[in-house]
Nucleic acid binder design. Sequence first.
DNA 1: CCGATCACGTCAACATGGCTGACATAAAAG
DNA 2: CTTTTATGTCAGCCATGTTGACGTGATCGG
Lengths: 170, 170
Amino acid sequence: MADIKAGVNQLFLREEELRTGMELLFYAYREFTAEPDEILAQIGFGRAHHRVIYFVGRYPKITVSELLAILKITKQSLSRVLGELVRQEFIQQQTGVRDRRQRLLELTDKGVELERQLSETQRQRIARAYRMAGAEAVEGFRKVMLGMMDEEDRVKFAPPAPARLAAVKR
Amino acid sequence: MADIKAGVNQLFLREEELRTGMELLFYAYREFTAEPDEILAQIGFGRAHHRVIYFVGRYPKITVSELLAILKITKQSLSRVLGELVRQEFIQQQTGVRDRRQRLLELTDKGVELERQLSETQRQRIARAYRMAGAEAVEGFRKVMLGMMDEEDRVKFAPPAPARLAAVKR
DNA sequence: CCGATCACGTCAACATGGCTGACATAAAAG
DNA sequence: CTTTTATGTCAGCCATGTTGACGTGATCGG
């Protein structure tokens, strides 16, 4: 009798806990993207532009294929936003030296400035969250987020630096 | 000299740490939504339908205004997906008794089944992440996610049950 | 060295899901 | 009885994803 009741209750708590996790993710992610979205809208860009600018800033000289592998969108979708960013001189391309088929991507000064502006609110938001939560909580956050990913993405965060570089750069 | 070097290094680590946080969020969220998206696509629905089904399942008898407040989209956007869900009998509406202007929303049996199917992969993913990370990490995850939100959303997760209900139900 | 493959780009068409603005109706509230 | 509220609806726009087809120049393998 008591056994059954406890079991049911535990099941309920588990279900509730999992739902809470889903919602934390939903609300946090939405607010995380809200502020940059506003800035982007003012200059006629969208979140897709932000993602491209972010990762080109993160990995200077990244190739188009590598960027596609990170974003997991089609080259046609990327081409649209990347083209705009290049035409408006936020990003510059240069032909690869080892492989002249490649177009290596880099932020221009203008691009660096926009990246900084866009990510600033997000960095502040994360910094605030980390500060409020404490170092131990941050480690927990990291663990849970990693557990949420498939192996493929998880390796990008492997502690030894070479592994991370290897996953994207080459 | 040593001071300056340490300071710079710490700044670098901080920047790197914040960027890592942003990326953890990006990759985890993307994979979190990938599986339901596939199922949805097969029945001609999208992520927007999932969100509606999810929150109607979460808060049975929720009103349209309350749902709008959670999703933070326009009523026209909601109307499109909600209309489809009602017409295809995943959700049923019933006129409010206290206020007959309200349309109280509830999942039908068909809706419950779809919700279960859609969220199942996500629950498993979270459960796996929680299991891998451990209870302490989960608490850290919770703290960081809450710190990421604005106060407005944070109150939805207040520990005393009445607070959470009050935020949405009434 | 030549044919296959690769990196990248482009055109066209389509779907989803946001948005604004305008207008309508029934119920509640003052 | 007038105003406000809850909901719905029509119409059109935009951003961003998709598929499919095709092209060009560079590299690679036999």
